[in-house]
Every structure is written in C-alpha cells, then in structure tokens.
Amino acid sequence: MSIPAEDFTDANGTIADRIFDRLRHAIVVGEIAPGSKISEPVLAARYGISRGPLREAIRRLESSSLVDRKPNVGARVITLTSEQLLEIYAIREALEGMAARLAAEKMPDAGIADLRRLLDQHRNEVAQEAWQAYFQEEGDLDFHFRIVQGSGNRRLANILCNDLYHLARMYRCQFGMRSDRARDALKEHELIVDAISDRDGELAEWLMRRHIRISRRATERRLAEMQRNS
C-alpha cells in the first residue's frame, strides 16, 4: 500500500530528504538487496510520491556510493567486493584515527560524559546478547559516528559520516550481528574514551587506529572462512 506523501514531510526536511533517508536505511540493512534495480515507477507508487523528489533522492544515493547508474542498465544498489571493503577499513583507520586525536583536543567535557553513558548502554546491550553481538544503531547511537562528530572538523565528518559510514554499516548488516570480538571491541572503545578524556590526542589516535586495524583483520579472517565454506 502506498504511503501518503505527507508522511515524508516535516519541519526538518523536504520530501527528498525523507525518502533519501528511508531508501538509504533500506539499502544499508538489506531490505533492498545488493544488485537490486532501483525502479522509479515502483518506488514512486510504493511511497506515494512524485518522481521529482525521488530522482533527487536517487542522485544523492549515487553521490553516497550506495547506488550505481550505468547507461542502458539504469540505477542499481551497489555490490561491494571484499577488496573494496578492506579499502574502506584502510581509509577509516587513517581518518578515524585523526578524528579521535581531534576529539581529544576539542570534544567538550559534556560530550565525553555522554560518550561514557553511551558505552554503558552498549555494555548492557552486549551483556544481554551473551557477549556475542555488538551491533550499534545509526547516528548518535554509534560510537564511531559520535567520535567523528566530536572532532569538530566538518569536512572530515562529511567524508566519514556521509559516505564511508553507511558503506561500512551495509557490510556489517550483511555479515550479521554475531561476533567473537564483542567484549574486546567494547573494551577498546572504553580505552579510546579514556584517552580522549585525558586529552591525550596521540594515544587516542593510536588506540583508534589499532582498534580499526584489529577489526579489519577479524573481517579478513571471516571473509576467508566464508570463501572456504562457499
């Protein structure tokens, strides 16, 4: 059943903004599968909106590298390769390390306190999953997102939060939530916050880079295991 267009409008954004957010979420969590064709008539009918805002939203999805458009083929949801995923990890290691260093220099005390409360929430959620899952919600409920925003560098935040962030989440959703690193990852997050709280930018950067590097190696092992089992 179509969703009325007014459901996509509010004081905080246009119809294009809202449909972009809805489609991006659907792609990231796998509701729209990798490789799926993006059909303007189907989506316009499904969401009860005109083609103009929908085209704008699709263009923004292309700019976010979540959708690829080819001549005579049309727009499709991207299908990332394992090589592209590891490239994302390499970029994240460098840029998020920088973000952690800047956060140690610029993040307000209140922001650091909020970050500690967020980790308390994560700890409770991970414990409920028997320490076998550490899957964070989007935006302000995501530890890495919060650190990047705390860096105070808008250009850095734009690169990480409007492009790489959603690509990385897309892969995490596809791989599933189970992990043998939940307890260790949470501890690594806590050490990073300690360094930021101590205003030790050099240590915060080193800890963040190490954290992402360890995650990359765990992902490489998982990819290798998936290949062996395929």
Rank of each mutant, 00 (worst) to 15 (best):
R228V: 12
R209P: 12
L141R: 15
M226Q: 10
R123V: 04
E93W: 05
S64E: 03
I192P: 05
M177T: 08
E225T: 10
S197I: 08
L115K: 10
P71Q: 04
K70H: 07
V73M: 03
R178L: 12
H122E: 10
T219H: 10
R51N: 07
D7M: 02
R169H: 14
E205F: 12
A218F: 10
A44C: 11
Q136H: 09
S2G: 10
V28F: 02
T9E: 11
S50Y: 04
S82D: 05
N12E: 09
A99V: 02
A104N: 03
R51T: 15
M226L: 14
R209A: 13
A33S: 07
E202G: 14
L164R: 08
A195Y: 10
I214C: 12
V28R: 00
M107I: 06
Q136G: 12
R172A: 08
R222L: 15
H189Y: 01
N158T: 11
H144K: 09
A195N: 06
V42K: 14
L119Y: 03
R221F: 14
R18P: 00
I27P: 07
S2L: 14
P108V: 00
K106V: 03
A45D: 15
S64T: 03
E138L: 11
Q121L: 15
E93S: 13
L61S: 07
A168P: 07
P108K: 09
R155N: 10
V193K: 12
D68F: 05
E87T: 07
E188D: 07
T79K: 14
I88W: 01
Q128P: 00
M177G: 13
I88A: 05
I112F: 03
R46S: 11
L95N: 01
I78P: 02
E96D: 02
M1C: 14
T219G: 11
K187E: 12
S197K: 11
P53G: 05
A185K: 08
I212W: 06
L156N: 13
R117E: 15
E93V: 08
P4L: 02
L207H: 13
S230V: 12
P41V: 09
R222S: 13
C173F: 15
M107H: 02
L66K: 01
N12S: 06
P53F: 00
L191V: 07
A195L: 03
L156C: 13
E83G: 04
S50T: 08
E125P: 00
Q136R: 14
I19M: 00
R51W: 05
S230H: 11
L164P: 02
I32R: 02
T14E: 04
G176K: 09
L167I: 04
S215K: 11
M98A: 09
L95V: 01
Y89I: 02
